[in-house]
Design a protein around this nucleic acid. Sequence first.
DNA 1: TCTATTGTTGATAAAATTAGTCAGGTATAG
DNA 2: CTATACCTGACTAATTTTATCAACAATAGA
Lengths: 165, 165
Amino acid sequence: MRLTTKGRYAVTAMLDLALHHAQEPIALADIARRQGISLSYLEQLFARLRKQGLVDSARGPGGGYRLGRPPAEISIANVIQAVDEKVDATRCGGKMNCQGEERCLTHDLWSGLSDQIHEFLDAISLAQLVEKRDGKNGAARQTGSIQFYPSAPDKMAKTKAALGL
Amino acid sequence: MRLTTKGRYAVTAMLDLALHHAQEPIALADIARRQGISLSYLEQLFARLRKQGLVDSARGPGGGYRLGRPPAEISIANVIQAVDEKVDATRCGGKMNCQGEERCLTHDLWSGLSDQIHEFLDAISLAQLVEKRDGKNGAARQTGSIQFYPSAPDKMAKTKAALGL
DNA sequence: TCTATTGTTGATAAAATTAGTCAGGTATAG
DNA sequence: CTATACCTGACTAATTTTATCAACAATAGA
């Protein structure tokens, strides 16, 4: 799991879409203007988001993009993975041909952590982020009260367990 | 909070050090060989880690690096922040001069999430990762039972609260 | 004490990867 | 038709990673 500006742009754009969910399709040009991201870069990102089914597109005048499924069913991890093609984190692909005991050991530790991060981000949906701030007006950062991904209770349990709770 | 290969290398190297904690200093050449990271890159990373006091260095034959403080007192977030100089995540530095309502809105959502990720990683120490696999031999990834950062119980509570628990 | 060895430190630059731009094409509503 | 907005692929810029080099520090052994 990697977390770069690319993923941040994608999440930001998807949040923008989620805020206009169930309305007319949103043109990328609007998102570009609102979020301060270049149109051409957005086009590149949305090509991938579309391939993953995270968004639907409509061409022509009045066209644009819509969320491919309800915001509650799109996790942050979904979005990031769609645009940030995964790099073989361990560099020994599934800890084979990984010579030396020490190496596999640290690689195991890292990939364990990496899994935790992934589960963490997979437990947060677009809907949650949006709902969260509907309660408080604009004070989204002070009080962090993020709920778990509701449509995947099994993952929630898993993440809770992972946190030792 | 950014999560790139650079941070991964740093964490991997620090884990390697943690595994040899309280022994002789470890030469970077050893880590480079064991973890498959270029020596020169490690030298650059460790220059930063040293400046942050996360490691101590010893020169001369038999020299190398040691952890700067007990592994239980070094969080993953510490390591990543030391090498990955922070990028202004919102691009409107603290949500000022952020024209347009929509923009600040999504930026708030993002920075809230970003804070969560940071707290999450700050709640995991090197010691925990190492201890974790001491129980199970090599099966570190299947059962994720990461404990919270023991020397910072306040942060643990904060993270728990952030998760809505 | 002198010297060879091992290893750090810092600067600089090349190679490789990633991020972002640009110029054109395609579909569609009016 | 035509204006809008998606789509695609080639291109450039920026960053990350590796490599090279020149000093410097500490130690072991003669």
